[in-house]
Design a protein around this nucleic acid. Structure first.
Lengths: 108, 108
DNA sequence: CCCCAACATAACCAACCTGTTACGTAACCG
DNA sequence: CGGTTACGTAACAGGTTGGTTATGTTGGGG
């Protein structure tokens, strides 16, 4: 569900704003190139994914980031992290060892 | 684009299989509850996102994971990792404090 | 050779976004 | 109070998605 929520750029923008400070729905809407009701629904998706919190303050709704929800993504990534790190290590080794030789060969 | 590709469960299953070993399109299709052409298109999405590689071997297409593409996700997460770690630290502190209190209580 | 196996692409369809405008509602403000 | 502000939800339009069946295409094996 979280990865699904993160797939949309508008929603990622919202998270980026909330990373710096909580904001009202109106402030978030002003920061996005879409109309208010669209933002409202994005906020609902984020809320249902556990990525944001809402708190009512008079007629304002103050949204704030709930970064713990991202742990799920981090844990998913964990199962792959070793792999790309190995690959990058291998690449670096490869570069260090053969870059010049291969370049000369390829350049013929 | 990568996050978009990761949003679909079938595609995540494909990645999970490829994490262990490369596989042909047919093997991947057998592992999924959907028909072959659907898998073909998922594979295309994954390829376009840079998440998998294909290599032709006779009439087989051998797909393999390209974990470097996940670095992008990791880097995106990086901007949030500190936040949830702080939150978790606070939680742990809280727990540790509560534990002590409870221990003292129990010890009375 | 011919045919089958392994795959991709095409064409199609239902379902689901993502945006819109229109409307409803709760709380403050004059 | 009555209006306005700050939202949310409803209803709707379109494009995209995720699945399907049908139709190539390419390479190998009998």
């Amino acid at each position: 569900m979280v990865l699904q929520a993160l797939a949309d750029p508008s929603r990622r923008t919202v998270l980026e704003i909330l990373r710096d400070h909580p904001a009202t729905a109106g402030e978030l809407a002003d920061a996005l190139p879409i109309a208010r009701p669209g933002v409202s629904r994005h906020l609902r998706v984020l809320r249902e994914a556990g990525l944001v919190d809402v708190r009512a303050e008079a007629q304002r709704r103050i949204y704030s980031l709930r970064p713990e929800a991202l742990v799920e993504v981090d844990e998913w990534l964990e199962g792959y992290r070793a792999l790309w790190q190995n690959r990058l290590d291998a690449l670096h080794t490869e570069i260090a060892r053969g870059k010049i030789a291969r370049r000369e060969k390829a350049g013929q």
